[in-house]
């Protein structure tokens, strides 16, 4: 069922991506490169070989998982800017379970247990913000953002004093890694986990009372109260679940890619995940497409750097432009709706 509003939404998103790329082309031109070559090495080249595609999927997994997590809060009209911290906490959980001696003792079980602990760690970290929001009315935007700094420094502390290996500030390797989906590539079962979780997300949002109530809370807090929903509980749960997904992203990153915990394990995924949720418009299929696109941009950026000399960080410029144009498009279309409504009421 695609409604008129849905079509309009898709139009806005496509337009936003297109305008962002046009604006990006101007920047590339100004820095003296050919935009076509740059975009070719950024968007097409990563898909030309199996090895390169594996690189795209490395980014795809955490982006999708965090995108789902952020979507849970967006549905309740909350924001979770703490993906980075929650992902680090999840990564810590996986690492603690995966490294010797626990990892050795658990053997293959260290993977499911690790994922579970990562989920709990991530959920706990986000739940702090949920608690502050519901108990004291503290802005979840500020709290989640600040918790990122605390998480990074906490991880640094743990790495420095407790997990340091070979004189470097990083943890030992975990014992058991996620198996490869296709031998000879970097594509792991993490992709399957992420895709299954998208399906779970889709079912929860569309088919369960929980999902419906969460959307009601986001749609109108007064209507939610009218409808008998415990709005504070839902605020809290949406934060915690969001954190759980970010925690899983951390676990997938450790067990599918880096094998050990460092300060930078979470990279920029926390914020890129927000772009994924927005660009995917909270829709399950949209999230998959959006995280693939973002993964492409991220992994293509280094190829672009070698081919054209445009620095890798250009992707961040492009991401930011996409977000700006989405927000502008939404504001314009919502503005029209509001004006029409105002006219009707009078």
């Amino acid at each position: 069922m695609i409604t008129k509003k849905g079509l309009q939404r898709i139009g806005i998103l496509l337009l936003a991506v297109l305008t962002a790329m046009l604006a990006g082309a101007v920047i590339i031109l100004l820095s003296g490169a050919n935009p076509l070559t740059a975009y070719y090495s950024m968007l097409v080249k990563p898909m030309t070989s199996l090895g390169n595609i594996g690189g795209v999927f490395i980014h795809f997994i955490p982006l999708l998982l965090i995108g789902i997590g952020v979507s849970f809060t967006f549905h309740a009209k909350l924001n979770n800017l703490g993906g980075q911290g929650q992902m680090l906490m999840g990564a810590l959980g996986m690492t603690l379970i995966g490294i010797p001696p626990i990892g050795e003792a658990l053997g293959a079980f260290s993977l499911p247990v690790g994922f579970l602990v990562a989920m709990i760690f991530g959920a706990f970290w986000a739940a702090i913000a949920g608690f502050m929001k519901t108990r004291f009315g503290a802005s979840e935007i500020v709290v989640t953002l600040m918790l990122n700094y605390i998480a990074v420094q906490a991880i640094n502390y743990i790495l420095f004093y407790h997990l340091r290996t070979d004189g470097e500030i990083r943890s030992p390797r975990i014992v058991k890694m996620l198996p490869k989906l296709f031998e000879g590539t970097r594509i792991t079962w993490g992709v399957v986990i992420a895709l299954v979780l998208v399906v779970v997300y889709a079912i929860v949002m569309a088919k369960t009372k929980f999902g419906f109530n969460l959307r009601t809370v986001g749609g109108s807090i007064k209507a939610a109260k009218y409808s008998g929903i415990n709005t504070k509980l839902y605020y809290f749960l949406s934060m915690a679940i969001s954190g759980a997904f970010c925690g899983i992203a951390g676990a997938a990153q450790i067990s599918g890619n880096t094998r050990r915990l460092t300060e930078s394990t979470a990279g920029d995924y926390g914020f890129s995940g927000i772009v994924v949720a927005m660009l995917g418009s909270l829709h399950p299929v949209g999230l998959v497409i959006a995280s693939f696109l973002m993964a492409l941009l991220t992994s293509g950026s280094s190829m672009m750097q070698t081919d054209t000399g445009i620095p890798e960080s250009f992707t961040q410029v492009l991401q930011a432009l996409i977000v700006l144009f989405i927000l502008m498009g939404m504001a314009i279309s919502d503005g029209k709706v509001k004006r029409r409504k105002g006219g009707k009421e009078k």
């Binding site: 419906f212 959307r215 009601t216 749609g219 109108s220 209507a223 409808s227």
Partner: peptide, 19 residues
């Protein structure tokens, strides 16, 4: 905004205030 969620479709609003 109270009796219904403005952004919901009618059938979704049918579920409000249901035990």
């Amino acid at each position: 905004g109270v009796g219904t969620v403005p952004d919901f479709m009618l059938y979704e609003n049918w579920l409000l205030r249901k035990a």
